[in-house]
Simulated assay, not measured.
Amino acid sequence: MRDFNRYRHKGAFCLMKYAAEDGSEVEWIWNSRDGVTPFCVSNRTGDKMLQHVDWHLDRRIFDYQPMPCERIFVDLSPDRARQRAERTIEHYWNRDDCAHIRQLFGTKEKAIEGLLAESRVGEAPDLVEFGSLEPGAYRR
């Protein structure tokens, strides 16, 4: 049984409010881990930023049961880190203003490996939809 009185981060196992600056969107996101969370995340459609607001309303709920399709923070997995790195390099690789990436790494694969080396797998937060997780992908 986990000793829930011991946690490293204030946001550990908290349900937190994220909102658009204009107030048009609010989303409550659960942090399923004892790890940091970002101050801002993209909304589901990717056209607005949601900021962690009203911190005084954060509630630590150790046995929170997310609903399918609800977004939660989990530890970044190796597979998700690779997906992110591949997507990032693919996006920037051929841009004229990013020639330095090609010069530094030489190949896309080396650039991907470079990003993976900095990704903090198992420690960095990842925002995922609960129903999309593999069984056991988040800690309870």
Rank of each mutant, 00 (worst) to 15 (best):
W28P: 04
W55E: 14
C14M: 14
D97W: 06
G114E: 01
D75A: 11
Y64R: 10
D63A: 13
M67E: 15
Q103E: 13
L57T: 14
K110N: 11
N94H: 06
M1W: 11
P125F: 02
I89P: 01
N5W: 09
E90Q: 05
K48I: 06
E109F: 00
D22G: 07
I89L: 07
I101T: 01
A99P: 03
P125R: 00
C98E: 07
S24I: 06
L57M: 13
Y64L: 10
K110P: 02
R140N: 13
W28A: 03
F130E: 05
G122V: 04
N5H: 15
V53N: 01
L133C: 13
V128E: 06
S119C: 04
E70W: 10
R33N: 10
A117S: 07
Y18W: 03
A124R: 01
Y92S: 02
A124V: 04
E109Q: 10
I72N: 10
L76Q: 01
S24C: 14
N5A: 15
I101P: 01
T45W: 06
R71L: 05
R95G: 11
R84Y: 14
Y92D: 03
N43Q: 10
R139N: 08
S132H: 02
A85Q: 03
A12C: 11
R8C: 15
L133Y: 00
R59F: 08
S77L: 08
S77Q: 08
L76M: 13
G35R: 04
R102Y: 04
S132R: 07
E86W: 02
E113V: 00
D58M: 11
A99Y: 03
E25Y: 03
Q65T: 13
K48S: 10
G106P: 06
R71F: 10
R80S: 13
Y7A: 14
A85W: 00
L76T: 01
P135M: 06
P135T: 09
Y64H: 14
S32H: 05
P38V: 05
T37V: 15
H52Q: 07
S24Y: 13
V121T: 04
R84S: 07
K10Y: 14
S132V: 05
L127A: 02
N31Q: 03
T88G: 04
E25S: 09
G106Q: 02
R82V: 08
E123I: 12
